[in-house]
Simulated assay, not measured.
Amino acid sequence: MTKILNVNNLGKSYFSGSKKLTILKDISFSVEAKDTFCIVGPSGSGKTTLLGLCASLDQPDSGSIELCNTETGNLSEDERAQLRNQKVGFIFQDFQLLPTLTALENVAVPLELQGNKLASKKAMELLEKVGLSDRLDHYPSQLSGGEQQRVALARAFSNSPTILFADEPTGNLDAETGEKVIQLLFDLNKELGTTLIIVTHDIELAQKTNHILKLKSGRIVENTTMAK
């Protein structure tokens, strides 16, 4: 299988005043194309920091990341942004929808930025897939949390990403709504052949993926392939 993400000896630290805080140390793993992969661990273990580094939103202090066959450490900020726009999708815990745009407009924006002349049509199709064809003209404030996350799901898949990063995608949802969103996420992921990497503290969600990487105090303590 093709490796879509290779992480080698990754390290990341921050300074708090004069004190150096090591967030991640000696992190190495790889993810295969079209796989489902989960990063788990307690609060403060470095999960979200690792996700940001893998997605090329930030740069490590040491080590290397190869994302979609591209060594990200050799890229300028503009080149990394271009890589994300072309290859990467994101889903966040707090939805991050634009409040002044309708559901349809929120999903169409990434497509319009790419110059896609069929942006509205594709956005409409994606919103239909997530069961929101009757909410196209609604603004985020007029949608429930679950509906907002479904709009975010449609937006994440709008540019047909090679790899999708989801940071606590059910963190702001009740259990029943979260379950429906996760089912949609996995269904869309399978249908569109995307690689899925999820950060979560939800063990039930983690066990739905093919691989679980467990962090503790910035180090890998477990790297498990799940029996399916």
Rank of each mutant, 00 (worst) to 15 (best):
T224H: 09
V31L: 10
E191P: 03
I197Q: 01
I27S: 01
T102F: 02
C38R: 06
G171N: 10
K216N: 14
S28G: 08
G63M: 02
K19H: 12
S13V: 02
E176G: 01
A206P: 06
G63S: 03
L5G: 00
S13A: 11
T72R: 06
F165P: 00
V130Q: 03
G178P: 01
F37R: 04
M124Y: 11
L213G: 03
T194R: 02
L192G: 00
G52V: 00
L53N: 06
S133E: 14
T200Y: 07
P99W: 06
C54V: 04
N106M: 03
S28M: 09
A123E: 05
S120A: 14
K190F: 06
F37H: 08
A33N: 13
S30W: 04
T209C: 15
V151H: 08
T36I: 08
K216Y: 11
I163T: 06
R155I: 05
E125S: 06
I91Y: 00
T224G: 00
D202N: 15
G63P: 02
K208E: 09
E222C: 05
K190Y: 05
S76M: 07
K87P: 01
S13E: 11
G52H: 15
L111I: 14
F92Y: 15
G218L: 01
G52K: 14
F29A: 10
L83K: 08
T100E: 14
L127A: 02
P140L: 06
N106K: 05
G193W: 08
A152Q: 09
E125D: 10
M226Q: 15
F15C: 07
T48M: 02
S64C: 12
S16Q: 15
N106I: 03
A119M: 07
S30Q: 13
V7W: 04
N69I: 04
T100W: 11
N85T: 09
F186L: 13
S141G: 09
S43Y: 09
D167H: 04
V88K: 01
L113W: 05
G89Y: 04
G41S: 07
N85M: 13
G41E: 03
F157H: 05
P169S: 08
F37D: 04
Y139R: 10
R84T: 13
S43I: 06
P169D: 04
A33G: 13
K20T: 11
S64H: 12
T2I: 08
F90T: 12
T194D: 01
V40T: 15
L67G: 03
L5A: 01
P169M: 06
K180T: 08
K20L: 06
V130Y: 02
D187S: 13
L113A: 07
F165I: 01
P99D: 09
G46K: 09
S158E: 06
N9I: 05
D94L: 10
R135G: 01
L51G: 06
R84A: 12
E71K: 15
L57A: 05
K19T: 13
V221K: 10
G73R: 09
K121V: 12
L10S: 04
N69F: 11
S120R: 14
H211F: 09
Q142M: 14
A206F: 07
